[in-house]
Design a protein around this nucleic acid. Structure first.
Lengths: 225, 225
DNA sequence: GCGTTATATTAACAGCGTTAACCGATGGAA
DNA sequence: TTCCATCGGTTAACGCTGTTAATATAACGC
């Protein structure tokens, strides 16, 4: 059967291959998220997807390649979140930059496996923030910063510098939120929902920490001592 | 010879043991800094210090214990830097907090091996910022923040929140500086010395990014567009 | 039909962390 | 002094790892 030499779309076989490759990536992602690079073994991945360990080598050059692919996929999804978050607000607005931070947080909460993989796997050859992934996050943030500078919404400065500043500030927040999701800190931790925490964190970034007039300080410190 | 049953200080033998243990820790630190946990092997460490691999197990419970000890030593030295930096300025002053950031940067530059180890090794059981190391950094920063709040130097807010904000901001800066030390970015990177970069970064943290009056903005943006 | 290519297999190698068994020297007690 | 225990170190071995080689099986193009 299937006498046709060039079957309609190489179907059945090609499809199975693609399916297997996706299954490998998924299994690898979960193992990576749980135990880092050390927790990922080719044999485990193989067993999860129901093939022999060496079969993986027909889809990936090796373990490192497999890890890289997972990380890249994570960054792509990460970029999607940022892009969607940004698109909802006018170019150059402070609101747009804020939306980026919110998307950052949302991605971390909704894709914890990918988030852990992305930011806990140390790259093979240390790469700088500039050349991360093609569409992956940084240059979106940078563009938002440049737009906001040109619109006069935020102060003019080196865009890379300010982007990194924003990035690391938000990243610190998200890191805290995720570590507080763990069962580890059960009451001694900051008792806030992620969104509340985000709202509490924002003013530092936007306004800075320098003490202002007494009235300002008093009206501002309402939330938490 | 050495007829005395309890020789003066168990010398020679004990000393050699301590020396070997220190050598193991040093070798482990270098290997960790270069290739992460995967780059550290008991057999390599053993070869570097000139003993058999299993000899290490008389000083450490296993690989994880060895890694933990290296990380703890790194944090102790890190704490020393912060403590020294802080002690030079009056309690509650903004200058003191700034000194903490400078000490953070200086430690990273002068102890890159330890810095990489400390912040790239993901802990076995994810721990929150609060209970990092005993005297290690965070609670120093937090105390500085509390003092500055009480002195009215910085705005009142949740100390943990603000400490984390400062921590992650400075950490972002240091990360960039270190990644630019690499041969990777050879001219496309921000052409500043670490100290210059630190000076450029500070205002964001201190003042925030919200656009202010035109005069302020003009007098402020002198350094870089 | 044949030959090529893709897919998957088993066998094997070197290296890993770790354990077990063993050995020499040292230190304290009889 | 003799004996025993403890410490510091060794080699051998187990089960795991990533990876390669050789091999088999199926599907494809001609």
């Amino acid at each position: 059967m299937t006498s046709s030499t060039t079957s309609p779309a190489d179907s059945e076989q090609r499809r199975r291959s693609a399916q297997l490759e996706a299954a490998i990536l998924e299994a690898a992602r979960d193992l990576l998220a749980k135990g880092g690079i050390a927790g990922l073994s080719m044999r485990m991945v193989a067993e999860r997807v129901g093939v022999s360990a060496t079969a993986i080598y027909h889809y990936f050059k090796g373990k490192q390649d497999l890890v890289d692919r997972v990380v890249r996929m994570g960054f792509e999804r990460f970029g999607d979140y940022l892009e969607r978050g940004m698109a909802a607000h006018p170019k150059g607005s402070l609101r747009r930059i804020r939306a980026l931070a919110e998307a950052y947080l949302r991605f971390a909460l909704e894709n914890q496996a990918y988030f852990r993989v992305i930011f806990s796997i140390q790259p093979q050859h240390e790469r700088s923030m500039q050349d991360l992934p093609e569409g992956g996050g940084y240059h979106l943030l940078r563009q938002g910063v440049v737009d906001a500078m040109e619109a006069g919404t935020i102060r003019r400065a080196d865009p890379d510098l300010m982007s990194l500043y924003l990035w690391s500030s938000v990243h610190g927040l998200v890191t805290l939120v995720l570590s507080c999701t763990e069962p580890l800190c059960e009451g001694q931790c900051i008792p806030m929902s992620p969104v509340e925490l985000y709202d509490a964190f924002g003013p530092f970034i936007v306004d800075g920490i320098r003490a202002r007039s007494l009235e300002d300080a008093r009206t501002d410190s309402g939330g938490r001592v």
